[in-house]
Design a protein around this nucleic acid. Structure first.
Length: 630
DNA sequence: TTAGGGTTAG
């Protein structure tokens, strides 16, 4: 092959008199034709090393003529049919790996029409493209399976595994399972593919059956299961399995967790808010030398953020040898969650010189502005994301803007913003308006939002409850009763509040109103004592949001049994003085608990970190990090 | 020349 020693390809007009046929000298069929003409004039032909590039360039072209033209060069240069297939196969693979897998299918039909005999590699690459395309390629995938049979390749295990993967990503899982049943031989990869596909679809019961039945497991089998449990919202089982894997590690090195396994396990800690275990796993990662893996570090940042330790998240971020847009976005979103808006915006300025932001980065920025009432800054980011960064606003961004405006009390503007949206607003967008309406006691805005929400998300209990809160706040009890009747008619039940607190490595969960904890009486007594002290300091239980048709005393009793108060009371009596108490709640923290927690932080001298559904509240010395803007 | 598990948001 004639190679150019120049680092950059010369412009065509500068092609030297003895032209280089280096692959870098053409990138379109038109340039190829020009180069070809010059070569012919000079009596030089393409070398074998040029052929794959010719195949890729012309294989990507929508023109049939380009394919035929390339084929004529390849046929004369390849020498025989097998080598010709090899050249086209590598072109198929390159296209399957690129961002244009549909080109593979088009090239494959040309391939078939030209009678180039396909082999196992051809099918493998075409199936890979189907897998990348997903369900839209299901028919094509089935047709390719038919060809595999027709060409007598049914005994190829490798190809069968690729078919399993294709059925798992394109078609109904039943097709993949049927193929698996019929396979003459299977290896650990066949089992892993099936388990991973089931796990991705959340079918963990069946994935578990296969995992238990498989003859031998590899690290990937374990990791697929652990990641599957995390994705399907069961981090406890994920960590249980991780522990089992560690126990087996001593007897077999094939099940030693690697970086990917740690990513899944640390993500489980993030979901559970289990800081102690998260730290332990981080320590293990360091010992195993996994600390420079970007994805692992990104997961660690997220874990520390979600476990309430922003400083440790920042430390991981600062020590990363390289950072991607995900690292920056995770850190910016983390700062937003913790109400550190100014730092989030500063980090964004730093980020701009290193990587391009994406949609998630802007969600973080808009959240940051929203949590701190920075309306003008938020508007600026929203206006600039498409104009200056080419990031198209999606539904979540519109939702953030409505949240920003309505939290700041600009409910009229928020409603106008929704009306001007270029796409039909989702339930979450109206939900943001509803939330703002509650905050500002705006019955009309609340009713406007709820009219849409009844249509879009009639079974979402949270929205009915917020509307009840709005009516209750306005003293409109007959409306509260009407909404509750609506809920009954629709069969909508209120999700009970749940709070978790970790004490001595054990996570304890409390459900609102439930006195099932073994130390329930003690916990209640402790809260009553504390409550008496708080009252002496001016705390008055806010019974206005209790939507029970009962007397004041009963309302106060109901408030005292809020899950976050029980978790706090238990945390206070079970940990040494001075220990930070970390609580995680499934819903938004209630207003009465928020007021009480501020006082408790002053009375007890403790730092109390609460992660609710939306953000973090860090109570210390009588105030909250949210500045009461939440 | 071919196959399997992972990150921010939700």
């Amino acid at each position: 092959m004639l190679t150019s020693s120049l680092a950059a390809p010369p412009a065509l007009s500068e092609v030297p008199s003895v032209p280089s046929t280096s692959a870098a000298t053409f990138s379109s069929p038109a340039q190829l034709r020009q180069l070809h003409a010059k070569l012919v004039k000079s009596g030089i032909s393409f070398s074998a090393a040029d052929l794959p590039r010719i195949a890729v360039v012309c294989g990507r072209s929508p023109s049939r003529e380009d394919f035929q033209y390339a084929r004529s060069i390849i046929v004369s240069g390849a020498g025989d049919g097998r080598r010709e297939a090899l050249v086209w196969n590598s072109s198929l693979n390159a296209l399957a790996e690129s961002d244009r897998p549909p080109d593979v299918l088009r090239l494959f039909s040309l391939f078939r029409a030209a009678d180039i005999p396909p082999d196992k590699y051809t099918f493998s690459f075409v199936l890979k493209a189907c897998t990348h395309i997903g369900s839209a390629a299901a028919t094509m995938g089935r047709a390719v399976h038919g060809l595999v049979e027709k060409f007598g390749l049914r005994s190829e295990l490798h190809l069968h595994n690729t078919l399993l993967l294709m059925y798992g990503s394109c078609g109904p899982m039943a097709d993949a399972l049927q193929l698996f049943e019929k396979m003459p031989t299977r290896d650990v990869i066949s089992w892993n593919i099936l388990i991973a596909q089931l796990a991705k679809k959340g079918e963990m019961a069946m994935a578990k059956r296969l995992f238990e039945a498989m003859p031998s497991r590899s690290v990937r089998s374990w990791t697929a299961m652990i990641a599957g449990y995390v994705h399907s919202g069961d981090p406890k089982t994920a960590l249980h399995l991780f522990r089992n894997m560690q126990a087996e590690e001593t007897s077999s090195s094939s099940s030693s967790p690697n970086e990917v396994t740690f990513v899944a396990a640390i993500a489980a800690c993030a979901d559970l808010g289990d800081l102690d275990l998260g730290r332990e796993l981080h320590h293990l990662c360091r010992r195993r030398g996994f600390h420079s893996n970007v994805r692992l570090c990104n997961t660690l940042i997220d874990m520390y953020v979600k476990c309430g330790s922003l400083s440790e998240a920042r430390k991981v971020f600062d020590e990363m040898p390289e950072r991607t847009v995900v690292s920056w976005s995770a850190m910016i979103c983390g700062m937003a969650m913790h109400g550190r808006a100014k730092e989030a915006l500063e980090l964004f300025s730093e980020m701009e010189s290193e990587v391009c932001p994406n949609g998630v980065t802007f969600l973080g920025l808009l959240h940051a502005c929203s949590h701190m009432g920075m309306v003008e800054e938020g508007r600026r980011y929203f206006a600039g994301m498409w104009r200056d960064y080419g990031v198209r606003p999606e539904m979540e961004h519109y939702g953030c803007m409505v949240d920003l405006l309505s939290r700041a009390g600009r409910l009229q503007e928020a409603a106008e913003f929704i009306a001007a949206m270029p796409v039909a607003p989702s339930g979450a967008v109206w939900g943001a308006l509803l939330g703002g309406a509650r905050l500002h006691g705006d019955v009309a805005a609340g009713e406007l939002a709820m009219r849409e929400l009844c249509r879009l998300e009639p079974s979402n209990d949270g929205y009915y409850i917020v509307l009840c809160n709005i009516y209750a706040g306005a003293g409109r009890w007959e409306e509260v009763a009407r909404v509750r009747r609506m809920m009954k008619e629709e069969g909508v039940k209120k999700t009970p509040g749940r709070s978790r607190v970790a004490v001595a490595g054990m996570v304890h969960e409390f459900v609102a109103g439930d006195c099932g904890h073994p130390r329930a009486a003690e916990i209640q007594r402790r809260w009553e004592e504390l409550s008496a002290e708080l009252r002496r300091r001016g705390y008055v239980p806010d019974t206005s949001q209790v939507m029970l048709d009962v007397g004041e005393e009963e309302k106060e009793r109901s408030l005292a049994r809020h899950s976050e108060k029980m978790a706090l009371s238990f945390g206070l009596m079970s940990t040494p003085p001075g220990t930070t108490i970390r609580i995680m709640k499934n819903l938004r923290v209630c207003g009465d608990c928020h007021a009480a927690f501020k006082l408790v932080s002053a009375v007890s001298g403790r730092k109390i970190v609460v992660r609710d559904r939306n953000r973090f509240h860090c109570f210390e010395g009588g105030s909250c990090s949210c500045g009461d803007y939440w």
